[in-house]
Write a protein that binds this DNA or RNA. Structure first.
Lengths: 156, 156
DNA sequence: ATTTTGAAGGTCAAAAAAAGTCAAAAATAT
DNA sequence: ATATTTTTGACTTTTTTTGACCTTCAAAAT
């Protein structure tokens, strides 16, 4: 028998449909519908709606909370997705970061101001840690920023 | 469903509008309008209209009492310097960062895209470290980004 | 002038409403 | 058999909502 996760995945993809590239759901509600543990929803989201499959998740807890699934427009974000999924690994040197950011700026994917912000955030001064950890941290910071830029490539 | 607090926040911001920097409301009246406990109003005021977000609250009890919401007018340069020199210390929590960035965006010091980038760079996901170090790292990253913004502010 | 009183707003902690984490158990696949 | 994937559940964290009780003020009553 097909696993539940596949059904849940299909359901969410149906919600997104053709025209919409963003949908909000309530974790508990969805879990209720599928008669499964709420954490099952989390599982599906974290295995099937990952950046390397072209999705990003946002969420909010508490009253009125939600989980938002955003599908990235792949055509626009190709280079970004390459950087996010391939080029950035567990560690990125300051030099590499500068090169990547420069490319994004040249390609008009980010403005010069945004590029400057990204350089600042990934600079050696921003990240004051032993060198071993520095490059690891930079990878995380850069990746999240790129994901954010990719997120904005959804409409238009 | 969106939480009531968001509606109440929006309502008060609409009351303030563009031209007005100050508005008086009656707590009980507002609570009546939104059919909620009066302390809910207090909750919204104390979480959304804080000095950090650029507001100050005054109030008076007793007959004819009121709550006055005042939006502060600070120059952009002042605000940046305050954040860099006063507000950011050795350590900044994720929530504090979000509030500061939101404030920068509302004051038009950074664009919404830039704000999103800054949120990404300072998010918990970007910085994967033991909590103790996390807040320290975030302070560094945020400070460098603000310095960058300040730099551009001066040039313009 | 003093005391009452009712009409405000304030405080604080508990309850409720979400979502997240993590590891163990169960089911599948190799 | 072993490894991987799925499923579950107990526990945590965050955010909102409510209610019971407290304080303050101004006006009316003494």
């Amino acid at each position: 028998m097909k696993p539940l996760s596949d059904d849940i995945e299909a359901f969410i993809k149906a919600l997104l449909g053709e025209d919409q590239d963003q949908v909000d759901v309530q974790r508990n509600e969805l879990a209720g519908y599928f008669r499964c543990a709420p954490s099952q929803i989390t599982y599906v989201l974290s295995t099937r709606f990952t950046p390397d499959r072209g999705y990003v998740i946002e969420s909010r807890r508490g009253g009125g909370g939600f989980v938002r699934i955003v599908r990235l427009k792949k055509t626009k974000a190709d280079h970004l997705l390459y950087l996010i999924n391939q080029r950035i690994g567990a560690s990125v040197s300051a030099q590499d970061a500068i090169v990547m950011i420069q490319q994004l700026s040249e390609q008009g994917i980010v403005s010069e101001r945004e590029a400057a912000l990204m350089r600042a955030a990934t600079s050696a001064r921003a990240i004051s840690l032993p060198i071993a950890l520095k490059d690891t941290l930079r990878a995380g910071v850069l990746r999240e920023m790129l994901l954010q830029v990719a997120l904005e490539q959804k409409e238009a």
